[in-house]
């Protein structure tokens, strides 16, 4: 993959900068992040000191077996989950220093979400679904709908704006979800298993779209996935296991070693 080849690699595979392209601004900086669930004998250490940097314009995938901490890490990065320790700075902002309202506002302005099960509201048209982040930002309904329709046009659904989500195929629904994640021009997009509910061909289409629409606009993308078929779309892949980053590679083949 061209972009992958253009990336600079480092010798330390667990270095937070490993494989990070030089000269790009850091979007997300994670240092020694820890997170546990439960108490006493039932405590589960989901993250055991994660160090990771993510650059603007980069698509990084978080991979690993179930329970390795991928979802916890993406939740911390997205600012929807409090970490126990360490530091997580997103676009220069440490979540710990924001109260819940400020954090919600920060997410509304800077972060786009793509969920595994799309999470489209079934009673809203797809244009209305896509307009939700703009409405949350306080934009007027008509203006929000216009922008949503323009974004749907970009993802190839410009002629379906009035359809309800259930009238669309899984791939089309995920494209709607991508449009929703991008419509408010966030600087960071977090995607949770964006292709797991899709067949191979549709997954390809969705990943190409994410790459094209998101990364080429200079956004940072964090994708949690099990789907090896889409690894080649990543600039870097961080393999997690038992709450650690085992290695960060720029080529999926290196995960085998």
């Amino acid at each position: 993959m061209q972009m992958t080849q253009a990336l600079h690699t480092t010798s330390t595979l667990t270095d937070p900068h490993a494989g990070l392209a030089q000269g790009r601004a850091i979007a997300v900086k994670c240092r020694a992040i820890t997170k546990s669930y439960g108490t006493g004998d039932n405590v589960v250490r989901a993250l055991r000191g994660i160090d990771l940097d993510i650059a603007e314009g980069e698509l990084i995938m978080l991979v690993g077996p179930s329970g390795c901490g991928k979802t916890t890490l993406i939740s911390v990065i997205a600012g929807v989950l409090d970490r126990d320790g360490g530091e997580c700075v997103v676009f220069g902002q440490d979540y710990e220093k924001l109260n819940s309202t400020e954090r919600a506002r920060f997410r509304a302005q800077n972060i786009g979400f793509v969920f595994q099960s799309f999470n489209l509201i079934p009673t809203l048209s797809i244009a209305e679904n896509v307009s939700v982040p703009l409405l949350i930002q306080g934009k007027g309904r008509h203006a929000a709908l216009r922008e949503a329709e323009a974004m749907l046009d970009r993802v190839g659904l410009g002629k379906r704006v009035k359809d309800l989500p259930q009238k669309l195929s899984g791939g089309q629904q995920q494209r709607v979800a991508i449009a929703r994640a991008l419509v408010h021009h966030p600087r960071l997009v977090v995607c949770d298993e964006p292709t797991s509910a899709l067949d191979a061909a549709t997954g390809e289409v969705v990943m190409k779209l994410l790459r094209q629409v998101a990364v080429e606009s200079g956004r940072a993308l964090v994708v949690v996935t099990h789907d090896q078929r889409i690894f080649r779309y990543a600039d870097r892949i961080a393999a997690l296991d038992d709450g650690h980053i085992e290695r960060i590679v720029t080529d999926a083949k290196d995960l085998q070693h």
């Binding site: 919600a104 506002r105 997410r107 972060i111 979400f113 969920f115």
Partner: peptide
């Protein structure tokens, strides 16, 4: 999802 996307309480 709305909460995650930044909808305040």
């Amino acid at each position: 999802a709305l909460k995650a996307m930044g909808a305040s309480s």
